Computed example of a mutant assay.
Amino acid sequence: MLIPPDVRLIVDADGFERLCAANRDMRLELEADGGLIVMAPASPDSGGREAELGFQLATWNKAARLGKTFSPSAGFTLPDGSIRAPDASWMRQEAWDALDRRERRKFSRAVPDFAAEIRSPSDPLDELRAKMAGYVANGVRLAWLIDPETKAVEIHRPGREVERLAAPKSLSGEDVLPGFTLDLAEIFED
């Protein structure tokens, strides 16, 4: 699908589901106002960083047994109507269990407790920051924006200023992901 940069496509939630089903190899998201977001597939470099983040999160969760982890292909319909697919996300087990089986098989009307995005070289920082603010405004309790190029991290939490860290070695999951520490060595490696 080729969309010129000066063209904005608007689609409703049902149309978005059909579009995703017909274009399974594309990375698509939907803005709250119905604006379609088309993203290029991740490069091997970016995909490897996403996989490392997901691996560490899933390994912690398997031991802690506190919830459910999700890959970048899991889409969530947030309260504002946007449909987002974070690079990594996690939801408390009680919240997952409360979802009807049918709801789990579509872009669930559910908000993960945690969401993380890893910036690719082509991602405009202002767009990612807006996305992070949207996560928190819709109920995400902890969100990380990780920038491997600058080795910086932004931590987004409800009701607090964004915390910016320069070249941290690790990140704490705080009370949202109790006992989880993300080792950033492989994510920041060149």
Rank of each mutant, 00 (worst) to 15 (best):
M1L: 13
I3C: 02
V7D: 04
V7S: 01
L9I: 15
I10Y: 14
D12P: 03
D12L: 06
A13W: 01
F16N: 05
L19Y: 07
C20D: 09
C20T: 14
N23G: 07
R24N: 07
M26V: 15
R27E: 12
R27H: 12
L28G: 05
L30C: 02
G34S: 04
G35P: 01
I37Q: 08
V38Y: 01
A40V: 10
A40C: 07
P41Q: 08
S43I: 12
S43W: 11
S43D: 12
P44W: 06
P44V: 13
D45A: 10
D45P: 00
G47V: 09
Q56I: 08
L57Y: 03
L57W: 02
A58P: 00
A63V: 12
R65H: 09
F70D: 01
F70Y: 13
S73F: 09
G75C: 03
F76R: 01
T77F: 02
L78H: 03
P79H: 10
G81N: 11
S82E: 05
A85Q: 08
P86D: 08
A88V: 09
W90E: 01
W90A: 00
R92H: 14
Q93L: 12
Q93P: 00
E94N: 11
E94Q: 10
A95S: 14
A95P: 00
L99P: 00
D100G: 01
R101Q: 10
R101W: 04
E103H: 07
R104K: 15
R104M: 08
R105L: 15
K106S: 14
F107V: 04
S108M: 15
R109T: 10
R109A: 10
A110G: 02
P112I: 04
P112R: 03
P112S: 04
D113P: 01
F114R: 04
F114N: 04
F114C: 05
S120H: 08
P121G: 06
P121W: 11
P121T: 11
S122H: 08
S122N: 13
L125D: 13
E127Q: 12
A130S: 14
K131H: 04
K131G: 02
K131F: 07
A133I: 09
G134F: 05
Y135A: 01
V136R: 03
N138Q: 05
N138M: 03
G139A: 11
A143L: 05
A143W: 05
I146A: 06
D147W: 09
P148F: 06
E149K: 14
E149L: 14
H156C: 03
G159Q: 10
V162K: 00
R164L: 08
A166W: 02
A166C: 03
P168M: 11
K169I: 10
L171Y: 08
V176K: 04
L177V: 10
G179F: 04
D183K: 13
D183S: 08
D183I: 14
L184D: 03
A185R: 15
I187Y: 04
I187P: 01
